[in-house]
Amino acid sequence: MNPGRKYHQVSWRLIRDIAVEQWAVGVRLPTEKALALRYGVSRGTIGETLTALEVMGLVELSRQRGARLVRVPHPAQMIHPRPSQSEITEARVLFEGEAAALAAVHGTRCEIEAIHELALANHPDEHRSDRAFHIAIAQATHNGAVLATIERLWDAVPISAPQPIRSRPGHDHLSIALLLLERNASGARNAMRNHVAATSGAGCQVPDAPPNHPSACNRQANVPK
């Protein structure tokens, strides 16, 4: 978790606690040390948190006297912050990697051949074709919860400008589709994890899951026809 995201989350928790515990305007907030212990973060993160609350007009900061509550949080300020793009990417790596492994085991031959055709297609709308490929894999898991989760994650994926040819989705899609055709659950999982990380703008490589990954998808399954 990067520092920016950490103080953002702590800010929301502190605002919620101020409202739930009904702190009165004018009350002194606990010291940075006490708040750091309360939320399990560093004093530096608490300093950033208090600065954020000052910018929001909720507290007044004084070097000698610490932080003082000057306004009760508005209900709109208690809404949990929208997940950052890096958080969405982390969730996609987790869920879509396992979805690919599940699809390799539970997908029908017809479903996987359709996924392969999507990988071969040259669609002018790259975002739409990319989404269609990933949702088709989620559908091939035959798990409604997995499908619903991945659909919600894709609703949060921004429509970005075309990517460099080396990281365009189609190149990875074909590799993933071939692994699904081979019923290679472990390979499909790792390929999907790396694909999501590479094409999301995260700029990182995801380490392969260990050979003894606890997923039930590593076992050989009876392939549905």
Results as ranks from 00 to 15, higher is better:
residue 71 R to M: 01
residue 154 W to Y: 14
residue 208 D to G: 07
residue 52 A to R: 14
residue 38 R to P: 02
residue 43 R to D: 12
residue 42 S to P: 04
residue 77 Q to E: 13
residue 96 E to M: 08
residue 6 K to I: 08
residue 74 H to I: 02
residue 218 N to Q: 06
residue 72 V to Q: 12
residue 143 N to E: 07
residue 85 Q to I: 07
residue 159 I to P: 06
residue 212 N to Y: 00
residue 174 L to K: 06
residue 194 N to C: 11
residue 109 R to Q: 09
residue 169 P to W: 07
residue 209 A to L: 05
residue 113 E to T: 09
residue 11 S to Y: 04
residue 155 D to M: 08
residue 225 K to E: 12
residue 148 A to L: 10
residue 108 T to S: 10
residue 105 V to A: 02
residue 74 H to L: 07
residue 180 L to S: 04
residue 158 P to I: 08
residue 108 T to Y: 15
residue 81 P to L: 02
residue 107 G to M: 05
residue 151 E to L: 00
residue 104 A to H: 03
residue 189 R to P: 06
residue 138 A to P: 00
residue 164 P to V: 03
residue 98 E to K: 00
residue 72 V to E: 13
residue 25 V to C: 04
residue 93 V to T: 02
residue 214 P to T: 03
residue 165 I to R: 12
residue 100 A to S: 06
residue 115 I to K: 03
residue 187 G to Q: 02
residue 193 R to V: 03
residue 12 W to D: 10
residue 100 A to E: 01
residue 168 R to Q: 15
residue 172 D to V: 04
residue 145 A to I: 12
residue 61 L to R: 15
residue 217 C to Y: 00
residue 188 A to G: 02
residue 148 A to Y: 00
residue 136 A to R: 01
residue 224 P to W: 10
residue 18 I to M: 09
residue 27 V to A: 14
residue 207 P to C: 11
residue 107 G to L: 02
residue 5 R to V: 02
residue 3 P to F: 03
residue 129 S to H: 12
residue 218 N to S: 06
residue 20 V to L: 09
residue 17 D to S: 12
residue 12 W to Q: 11
residue 92 R to G: 07
residue 200 S to M: 08
residue 11 S to V: 10
residue 212 N to P: 02
residue 51 T to H: 14
residue 188 A to S: 08
residue 135 I to H: 14
residue 199 T to I: 07
residue 138 A to W: 06
residue 103 A to Q: 05
residue 11 S to H: 06
residue 39 Y to R: 12
residue 150 I to W: 02
residue 59 V to F: 15
residue 169 P to N: 14
residue 112 I to A: 00
residue 77 Q to I: 15
residue 153 L to Q: 07
residue 115 I to Y: 13
residue 72 V to W: 15
residue 37 L to D: 15
residue 116 H to Y: 11
residue 150 I to L: 10
residue 206 V to L: 09
residue 178 L to E: 12
residue 210 P to G: 01
residue 69 L to W: 10
residue 173 H to Q: 15
residue 67 A to T: 01
residue 100 A to F: 01
residue 130 D to H: 15
residue 71 R to K: 14
residue 20 V to F: 09
residue 89 T to D: 11
residue 6 K to S: 11
residue 13 R to Y: 06
residue 158 P to Y: 14
residue 144 G to L: 13
residue 27 V to W: 05
residue 138 A to S: 09
residue 84 S to D: 14
residue 190 N to Q: 06
residue 106 H to C: 04
residue 131 R to D: 03
residue 200 S to R: 07
residue 145 A to M: 12
residue 82 R to E: 15
residue 25 V to Y: 09
residue 1 M to H: 10
residue 121 A to Y: 13
residue 99 A to N: 02
residue 151 E to A: 07
residue 25 V to H: 11
residue 8 H to A: 14
residue 189 R to F: 01
residue 190 N to I: 03
residue 201 G to N: 10
residue 39 Y to D: 10
residue 93 V to I: 14
residue 195 H to C: 01
residue 41 V to H: 06
residue 27 V to D: 13
residue 152 R to Q: 14
residue 192 M to V: 04
residue 195 H to K: 11
